[in-house]
Computed example of a mutant assay.
Amino acid sequence: MNKAMKNPTVFILFVLPAVMLFLMFFIYPIFSSLYFSFTSWNGVAKLDKIKYIGIDNFTKALGQDRFWVAVKNNAYFILFSVFLQVPVIVIFSLLIAHVKKLKGLYKTAIFLPSIMSTAVIGILWGFIYEPDIGLLNKILSFFGIGKIYWLSDNTYAMLSILITNAWQWTGYYIIMVLAAILSIPKELEEAAAIDGATAYQRATRIVLPLITPIISVVVMLSIAGAMKAADIVIVMTNGGPAGSTEVMATYMIRYAITSFKYGYGNSIAVLIFIFTLIVTLIYQLLVARRNERIEY
């Protein structure tokens, strides 16, 4: 086997399928989307009748208020994930890591929403948010709070989606952080406990610094997920009410597929890629580069 792998031909044959799949499903779609973003193609007409219109699609998108509402909603996704969801993930990971009994049950229960279909989760939380018979309003009624239209009121619709999205993916990230915590040698915490360190001190001064790299990865994944969020919005509100929960991905789908403005939809896809690149680059420069790999 070793002799075969040293043969360049055999090596190329092993690598070629992966390279072909990468080119077909990653590189080609990127350049195809970039090309069509400069056209007025409707997605149906013959390719030889495509009309090149330059940067008109981009100027049109950047000049529309509804597009900037979508950008703002994506920013809400990012801020909610980074400043609310990530701290909750770390806290729950620390708690589960120190559970003595039924740890497997807790890990399974908290990971379960991550493997459920987004459509199922959207429908489930739709019942929870239902104004008349929903569980949330029933609970609030015990405290004298009146009926709230969670998904049809501009004030609460976006927050409702953010909570649902966080509920779905928090367990997935907890498993990642929990794996990092459990990989820390127990001797470190035991030595700190012998020296008189409290559980809080051990968590903040030993565990958290050691899992900083994985927390950085979780933040990066949260940002990427926030920028491509679409399915949960489509299932729960479809961008409503009055476009108040529209995100860039649903805005793109609305024009590229529903309105047959394929060229314009591709320009939105390119803008999503550029915005994601900018946000992740800023995070890498300001935060992620400071988190060096930790050896223990």
Rank of each mutant, 00 (worst) to 15 (best):
M1V: 06
N2Y: 11
K3A: 15
M5T: 14
M5H: 08
F11S: 15
I12A: 12
L13H: 00
V15C: 11
L16V: 12
L16A: 15
M20T: 13
F22V: 10
M24P: 01
F25C: 15
F26E: 06
Y28V: 15
I30R: 00
S32I: 06
W41Q: 02
G43N: 08
G43R: 07
D48C: 02
K49W: 01
Y52T: 05
G54K: 08
I55W: 14
N57D: 03
T59K: 10
A61W: 00
L62A: 09
V71Q: 08
K72W: 13
A75V: 13
Y76R: 04
I78Q: 07
F80K: 01
S81H: 04
V82G: 07
Q85N: 10
V86Q: 10
V86S: 12
P87E: 10
F92P: 08
A97G: 10
H98K: 15
K103E: 13
K103W: 06
Y106T: 04
K107M: 13
I110F: 09
F111D: 02
L112K: 05
S114A: 09
I121T: 00
I123R: 03
F127A: 09
L136D: 07
L136W: 03
I148V: 14
Y149K: 03
W150L: 07
W150K: 07
W150H: 06
L151N: 05
S152Q: 12
T164E: 11
A166N: 06
Q168R: 05
W169I: 12
Y172P: 10
A179L: 07
A180N: 03
I181K: 04
P185Y: 11
K186H: 09
A191K: 08
A192D: 11
A192H: 08
A193N: 03
A193Q: 05
A193W: 02
I194F: 01
G196Q: 10
T198W: 00
T198L: 01
R202E: 06
A203H: 06
A203I: 12
I214S: 00
I215C: 11
V218Y: 00
S222E: 11
S222P: 07
A226W: 03
I232M: 15
V233G: 01
M236E: 06
G239Y: 02
G239N: 04
G240Q: 10
P241C: 02
A242F: 08
A242T: 14
M248D: 04
I253D: 11
S259P: 01
Y264I: 02
S267P: 04
A269N: 08
A269F: 05
A269D: 07
A269S: 14
L271D: 02
L277D: 03
L277Q: 03
L277T: 07
I282L: 14
I282P: 04
Y283C: 04
Q284N: 15
R289P: 11
I294L: 14
E295Q: 11
